[in-house]
Nucleic acid binder design. Sequence first.
DNA 1: CGAAGCTCTGTGAACGTGCACAGATTCGGG
DNA 2: CCCGAATCTGTGCACGTTCACAGAGCTTCG
Lengths: 340, 340
Amino acid sequence: MPTDLPRRKRATIHDVAVESGVSRGTVSRVVNGEKYVSAEARIAIEAAIIKVGYVPNSAARSLVLQRSLAIGFLVHEPHSLFVEDPNIGNILLGANQTLSLADYQMVSLIIDTERDTERVARYLSGGFVDGVIVVSARENDPLTRLIERLGLPATFVGHPPDLRQLPFVGINNRGSARAITNQLVATGRKRIGMVAPAMDRDSGSDRMAGFRDALGDRFDPALVASVPFYSFSSGLAGMRELLQRDPLIDGVFAAADSVAAGAVEALREAGRRIPEDVGIVGFDDSSWALRTQPPLSTVHQPATELGEAAARSVLSQLRGEEPNLAGIILDSPVVWRASA
Amino acid sequence: MPTDLPRRKRATIHDVAVESGVSRGTVSRVVNGEKYVSAEARIAIEAAIIKVGYVPNSAARSLVLQRSLAIGFLVHEPHSLFVEDPNIGNILLGANQTLSLADYQMVSLIIDTERDTERVARYLSGGFVDGVIVVSARENDPLTRLIERLGLPATFVGHPPDLRQLPFVGINNRGSARAITNQLVATGRKRIGMVAPAMDRDSGSDRMAGFRDALGDRFDPALVASVPFYSFSSGLAGMRELLQRDPLIDGVFAAADSVAAGAVEALREAGRRIPEDVGIVGFDDSSWALRTQPPLSTVHQPATELGEAAARSVLSQLRGEEPNLAGIILDSPVVWRASA
DNA sequence: CGAAGCTCTGTGAACGTGCACAGATTCGGG
DNA sequence: CCCGAATCTGTGCACGTTCACAGAGCTTCG
């Protein structure tokens, strides 16, 4: 007995109309909570909706309204970033919260392979989202170009240097890096190095610039270990390298807490005491910072707030307001703990 | 001169048809790569597409095709899980990879607040996705009910006990917990406790059951600290509690690596040496496992493969195949390192 | 040479909504 | 009592696609 009922078709607004004995128009008014509907009709329609199990078809609605009530959240390079970087999770949650209050659905799109880029491009072009929040874009990103071309309302978290016409939210990476390096210098360290991750991103190169600002003449390129990612293993490798290059190193700026945690591990391996022998500072104030021993001095990055601000920025564009192209910069104060 | 051009309207298939001097039908055939179109027409149309900047409108396409070529990825409880649990990132990447190859767009939906539940329900009902992968659902989840009711193709990662009619992928939590506890017992520990997170989830309660299986008569409820989340801080708190309840404890099963990492910290605080004084084992084989000192003995959870399997399962349902309701169980072998 | 089969093209209908508009009913006030 | 306003309802069209179908032109073959 092959009873494969062909997946009962979904009820439409028309079915509700028939069931409740009114017209499509009236049902539509009830569904969208408009006025000018008699109590009688409303009751009958509400009952009918439940009876036939009606749910509005968003595709049809998008088509006629020319909007989807959804906002994309674009994440690049998930392998290194998604898994290792606690910030991105908080940015995401902040954005989700704000969008949720405005009744927008956030959909995260992961860009991993080449193939993803094309598919996401189609997705964005296809009208599935009304706007987009972009995290961790690099320079020369084809999707950035696409977004510009489509005129899709967008806000970036951080800003690749080639971003001109699109608004962004961020922190002052350079200034904060300078500030915390200055504090490290003030503890009396003589040979200060840096583990510098992700130099191909604005955040990475800006933090490096701030470090350099703070050291001035005392800056020594030999004491900078450039590493690819914001990750524990990058920090481990970078610090080992620095120790090898200069065993007398007594201060380190690891430009992300995950990297700093790796560096702490490398220092421990090498038998260095923190902060007695070596002072180390991080960046981000992520959950990593309180797990190292001793807890990290670091720069507090307001990840949740960044997500919220990005969401607000996109929503304001959707309301037709002019985006703030100068960028929205949030405070990122130094948090001084025991690691330096 | 208020030149606010009202966001140039998007080109439609009709514009392309006019531009290239053929009909909609022919353009549609070109766009969808069908045969029966002359070389001449094809060239003209391709040129016209570029000229007018045509991108197909997915909402319209979804409407007529009754499918969206998108799959939802549902994440519950992001606060605790998303940020702390490296597994979920890998599950997500595995799923994304497999879906990507099949040219499906994965969209992750975060469920954080009450409000999110309703909105996501609308989103799922609205035909924005053709199927869904559900991670970390709890018992009695309204979205699980909704998915059943909609008949939406779905696959769960892990399975809440009230899941009857829907397929899932997972590991044998109970068996693996039993296996690693047995190995811990075999090292000669006498007083073995457990930090038991997330007992309200199937994974949590199953791991607990396996622990109990292995200890048999020697199981002592006083040596179990139940903690809410799969997180570092849960582990820290849970282990402190266990140490207080029984200072002579010499073995611990912390049922997630993040929890184990917290427990390691608590043991360190208390001056216990690992593995000399206390042997500790975790679960997950996440990136946490190699960061503790010494590295954790743990159960390897094939997170990426779970994501891939879930994606394959949803895709097969989309092809009309019958889902495997018995569940797909992947191997999760014990990885023995130095922490016990 | 005509029928049958390909190849190619255009047309109308359908998908499920929202909205503008027109029409019907009720209500209040002069 | 009548007229205008307010309230309520139904209808047709539009949104941008795909698809079935019809038909035109060309080739092949009996």
